[in-house]
């Protein structure tokens, strides 16, 4: 599968500021007038120094952060949804069916086992619980999470193990769009390779991916295009 001309995400003229009311109304401008279009089969690597707004941009695309102006259109089924203006129910629907997100840190829910955390997105989509857990197990096994950990809640796992559970969860469903925020940060070389393979497989099947990778090797392997936040801003 090669990159097509079918856009999946169109971000136009987006601006993001933070106003810290409790610090005297201090205003932090993160980015201004950004434009980004990502097509099917692309893996866009967000680039820029720390604090440039890479994670912020990703969260804005996911609907987790609001934007000051502009629009973020996402292809959800056959319709375009503007994540910056959509109703909460719509954003949740997009996240359920269309857009996956692997954050930097796993948010562990007390008492829920690693296997169930990974299976949850599948069960939410209506898949049979048993089958969902089988698939979850396959992913965890691929990422070399020991089987004896699968039935435990991940709160006591190591950083790397938690991250791998997080990744497995993000890849459980074949989302048309994937957002990856430093997925390989806490991983050893072997697991980095596995994740790299998983990302490339996703690109192969036609997913549109946006990622932040601090590891240069991974970047060059999976990335189809580089998007530099700072220069994009300046270019606008």
């Amino acid at each position: 599968m090669t990159i097509t001309n079918k856009p999946m995400i169109i971000a136009e003229d987006i601006c993001k500021n933070f106003v810290l009311h409790n610090q005297g109304g201090q205003k932090i401008q993160v980015f201004n007038n950004l434009n980004l279009t990502v097509n099917e089969g692309e893996c866009v690597v967000l680039h820029g120094p720390s604090g440039a707004g890479k994670s912020t941009l990703m969260r804005a695309l996911y609907g987790n952060y609001l934007i000051g102006s502009g629009s973020i259109k996402v292809l959800h089924g056959h319709d375009w949804v503007d994540m910056s203006r959509a109703q909460p129910q719509q954003i949740l629907a997009v996240r359920k069916y269309t857009m996956g997100y692997v954050s930097q840190f796993l948010r562990a829910i007390p008492r829920v086992s690693a296997l169930d955390i990974v299976a949850e997105p599948l069960i939410t989509l209506g898949q049979d619980e048993k089958l969902a857990r089988v698939r979850a197990g396959d992913l965890l096994a691929r990422l070399r999470v020991p089987q004896n950990l699968w039935s435990l809640p991940p709160a006591t796992f190591s950083g790397g193990e938690q991250q791998r559970v997080n990744i497995a969860r993000g890849f459980a469903v074949d989302f048309p769009i994937l957002l990856l925020d430093e997925p390989t940060a806490s991983l050893d070389a072997q697991n980095r390779k596995t994740v790299t393979d998983m990302i490339m497989e996703a690109t192969q099947r036609g997913a549109a991916i946006i990622g932040i990778f601090h590891d240069e090797d991974v970047r060059t392997q999976v990335g189809t295009r580089l998007y530099d936040i700072k220069t994009q801003e300046q270019a606008a």
């Binding site: 933070f18 969260r59 609907g63 987790n64 952060y65 609001l66 909460p88 954003i91």
Partner: peptide
């Protein structure tokens, strides 16, 4: 608004 949005932003 959306829970995670209100709490994170």
């Amino acid at each position: 608004g959306l829970t995670d949005q209100v709490l994170d932003d």
